[in-house]
């Protein structure tokens, strides 16, 4: 196995408002928590109080949604400074965001929009990642987005782009296995080829989530259980990458915390299955 550039934290969950009290009071047996950076980039009050309490007992990673790393607007320095301040306070294991854009003409769309995968985009995004990493003083991870469209002008696949971006910018990858599956279904590419293209050492974290089906498209809604195909893909990822910090994203129709723990238990089961070699043996027998 090639060691990852990022420490292995085990299995974590997203810290969501519905579970603040439960987590602070009961300290559940979860290895770590991921928090949405923007929710805590505030002066004080309950969000910061909860985060400080959780940080006393757990490793925390910061996951942003508004970096807009692929935008052609200037980097939002105020945002970066607030993120840096939060990072100083929280001392996260790492900071991540998405390979996407969400701002144009001074307007924030609050979405993770795709880009054309071209050499021009590669140069642009790699430069911005390096600038962000210099400002934050640490390597960041970028997550593959789920997408519902591809640009006609793309010159390479998303996975070729992401792998090359990580190499050029010297950043990490947050591999969202559900996003791979959703996008693969929506655009008709091979999810196994996507996994095979990932630079092993740069994948520091894995996301799992549920999605929904709207007509002919799969939508990344984070409102349900991880589907069987995504579990299979996750096992394949772990078999290739080795142990990777894994977390479940569940942001809408949020269930009881115990249900999230059960879903995390399924992730543990699939990871053990993958690392035992059974996954590879099954693939081999399927191929035969």
């Amino acid at each position: 196995m090639v060691p990852a550039m990022f420490p292995y934290l085990g299995r974590g969950l997203g810290l969501r408002r519905e579970h603040y009290r439960h987590v602070v009071e009961n300290k559940p047996a979860v290895d770590w928590f991921e928090v949405i950076s923007e929710n805590f980039m505030v002066a004080g009050g309950n969000p910061r109080r909860v985060l400080e309490a959780v940080r006393l007992d757990y490793p925390v990673v910061l996951h942003g949604v508004s970096l807009s790393i692929a935008s052609t607007e200037p980097l939002h320095i105020g945002y970066l400074d607030e993120l840096a301040e939060l990072a100083r306070a929280v001392e996260p294991a790492w900071i991540s965001d998405h390979l996407s854009w969400g701002t144009a003409h001074g307007i924030s769309l609050h979405d993770l929009l795709p880009i054309p995968y071209t050499e021009e985009s590669l140069v642009h995004v790699a430069g911005r990642v390096q600038a962000v990493q210099e400002r934050l003083g640490q390597r960041i991870l970028l997550e593959n987005p789920s997408s519902y469209l591809v640009f006609k002008g793309s010159e390479m696949t998303e996975y070729e782009f992401l792998a090359e971006l990580a190499r050029r910018a010297d950043c990490g990858i947050l591999l969202d296995v559900n996003n791979i599956f959703v996008s693969a279904c929506n655009h008709g590419f091979d999810p196994h080829a996507y996994l095979a293209a990932m630079p092993v050492e740069r994948v520091g974290q894995i996301h799992l989530a549920g999605h929904s089906i709207e007509g002919a498209l799969r939508i990344d809604t984070h409102d349900g259980y991880v589907c069987p195909e995504v579990w299979q893909l996750y096992a394949e990822a772990i078999a290739r990458l080795g142990p990777r910090s894994t977390m479940i994203e569940w942001d809408a129709k949020v269930p009881e915390f115990s249900e999230l723990e059960r879903e995390l238990g399924r992730a543990a089961h699939w990871a053990r299955f993958a690392l035992s070699g059974a996954h590879g043996q099954k693939e081999a027998s399927d191929a035969a």
Partner: peptide
């Protein structure tokens, strides 16, 4: 510049306008 002639900025402008 991508094959369809849209730069990254133009592609973002086009999508932004539609959204």
């Amino acid at each position: 510049m991508p094959r369809d002639g849209l730069t990254l900025a133009e592609a973002q402008d086009a999508l932004f306008a539609h959204i």
